[in-house]
Design a protein around this nucleic acid. Structure first.
Length: 297
DNA sequence: AGCGGTCAAGTTGAT
DNA sequence: ATCAACTTGACCGCT
């Protein structure tokens, strides 16, 4: 009923994803930049295949793809399109192969773009860059059959209702490949489930319910109320997040993630229905496997 | 081989 | 004013 998901990287398994920095690439001419980015893309597509294989072998039912899997694609100076890469065709083939593996093994794939991707900003260039980034992730998501691209509400900019209005307007004007995958997650500072749920209902965008964020940044909803309301926003299997605080909820930094998940933090009401739970814990695959054992034996 | 500085991007709140 | 935190450290130049 519940499938647990691993986020982005491995602690023990020798599966690594490569990255690049724009600063470093700038010393090379364009052809060499594209050659290097092509190599990284090819390696990362292969790494994704290995990640999915590992998840299947270990009974991990979901995997979050890190947002730098094709690094610097939207960078103003060194950015590129797939067809610019010398191995572009092969890269797409490898991603599709990884996607077919995920589909055949029922491994659910998701994206979580980084903190710069914001649809509530009053700054048009921030929004423009965010949509460009979302387009790239949606492109990869189509290749690999990922059904979730998850972002936060973003900033409040001193006026939550206005920020929510901008967010809603931007969501409704997104292209279908993005909008059909986009989800919103309650965060630990600005947007609780209660503040996002009306927007989710209006736009059809599902709520990724993060119970740790909700405990750190609560509203009038109980965990079981938020769970039930979040479930209603999904037209497919819901996807939620779990993590445990490094030094307890009463400590000075309750937001920091622990290496593992305390099974007591896993809500009792998260059972009895199909659900994906992405595990946000520093010990990565070890934490997922330990939680799986603690919960399900 | 190992270490420390650095990396495109936004926003918030603790210090 | 500065800085860590946010879904995730990896890369590079130096010794």
């Amino acid at each position: 009923m519940v499938r647990l998901g691993l986020c982005c990287v491995f602690k023990t398994q020798p599966i690594r994803f490569r990255r690049a920095t724009a600063r470093h690439l700038k010393q090379f001419d364009r052809k060499e930049q594209l050659r290097r980015l092509s190599e990284i893309g090819l390696d990362n597509a292969e790494g994704l295949f290995q990640a999915i294989s590992f998840c299947h072998e270990m009974g991990i039912g979901a995997f979050r793809v890190n947002s730098q899997i094709l690094p610097l694609m939207t960078h103003p100076d060194v950015g590129y399109r797939i067809k610019d890469l010398p191995m572009g065709v092969e890269i797409v083939k490898r991603f599709r192969r990884s996607g077919e593996l995920a589909r055949s093994r029922s491994i659910r794939l998701s994206f979580h773009p980084d903190q710069f991707v914001l649809l509530s900003s009053p700054n048009p260039s921030v929004t423009r860059n965010s949509i460009a980034e979302l387009s790239c992730q949606a492109l990869i998501a189509q290749w690999i059959h990922a059904d979730v691209i998850n972002i936060h509400g973003g900033g409040l900019y001193g006026d939550r209702p206005q920020a929510l209005l901008r967010l809603e307007k931007e969501i409704l004007s997104l292209d279908e490949p993005i909008r059909s995958r986009l989800t919103l997650e309650n965060d630990d500072r600005s947007y609780t489930p209660e503040t996002l749920l009306p927007l989710c209902r209006n736009t059809g965008v599902p709520l990724v319910y993060d119970v740790h964020h909700h405990r750190v940044n609560p509203d009038r909803l109980s965990v079981s109320e938020a769970t039930a309301l979040a479930r209603e926003t999904w037209n497919r299997e819901p996807l939620f997040h779990i993590s445990s605080p490094r030094n307890g909820f009463q400590g000075s930094a309750p937001r920091q993630h622990h290496d593992f998940i305390d099974p007591a933090d896993f809500p009792a009401c998260w059972s009895g229905f199909d659900l994906t739970v992405e595990v946000e814990a520093k010990a990565k695959e070890e934490a997922v496997l330990k939680l799986k054992k603690d919960l399900f034996g």
